[in-house]
């Protein structure tokens, strides 16, 4: 049990510190790296409470795919320059009240969540579900997800698909006059179409129709 709590406190301290560093660090790329560290330590915490499927999916989806795209975008932008311009301008101070309001709302929401948990501990009644500890976490997840909640599951999948298609449609522009390569045409080229052997007479050269 001691080892368990040592690991728990190590990972949670890393998670909290890296979450703070995400907002504090001046270099945006560093913030993304701290965000990744945060994701990793939180997935370690998931694994420690026995939710190994959730932890691994967190690693695959957030760290393996989403954060890579984050990093990609942040590296491509010239953030350092923009940030300096933005902080120097007057309009940046106008956003402070809005940010304060949003952060207060989030703070009170967190208090409500923690307080609700404190005053009603049986809110998440584990015995309520058909939790069978003989099967693994992943098995029981699959048994619930594809039977009781199949419609919700499919619906969320459809929403994600629509969001994806929407994003593609919004950014897709049909441009005129773009040279495109046809793979079929490239592969099916014969030698006779591409190469021609010519007898070149001296001092005359050849004229090739382009």
């Amino acid at each position: 049990m001691i080892a368990h709590s040592i690991f728990f406190y190590t990972f949670s301290i890393i998670a909290v510190i890296s979450a703070i560093m995400v907002t504090v660090s001046k270099n945006t790329v560093h913030s993304v790296f701290f965000l990744i560290l945060d994701f990793i330590s939180i997935s370690c915490l998931f694994i420690m409470i026995g939710a190994e499927f959730l932890g691994m999916i967190m690693l695959i989806v957030y760290v393996g795919a989403v954060a890579v795209l984050f990093l990609f975008v942040v590296m491509m932008l010239n953030v350092a320059q923009q940030k300096n311009q933005w902080f120097a301008s007057q309009e940046s101070s106008g956003h402070i009240p809005v940010g304060l309001i949003i952060s207060t709302i989030i703070f009170f929401e967190l208090i409500i969540v923690i307080g609700g948990w404190k005053y009603k501990p049986d809110l998440f009644d584990i015995n309520n579900t058909t939790n069978n500890f003989s099967v693994s976490n992943t098995h029981s997840l699959g048994q619930i997800l594809y039977t009781d909640y199949i419609h919700v599951f499919q619906l969320s999948g459809m929403i994600l698909l629509i969001a994806m298609i929407g994003a593609i449609v919004l950014t897709f522009r049909k441009r005129e006059g773009v040279k495109k390569q046809s793979y079929l045409k490239q592969i099916s080229r014969e030698r006779s179409e591409g190469v021609e052997l010519l007898e070149v007479e001296t001092n005359k050269g050849v004229k090739i129709d382009d």
Partner: peptide
Amino acid sequence: NVGILYLFAVSSLGV
């Protein structure tokens, strides 16, 4: 329990 997911996750971190 989730060995193959672990392999997949670690290989996706390799980037």
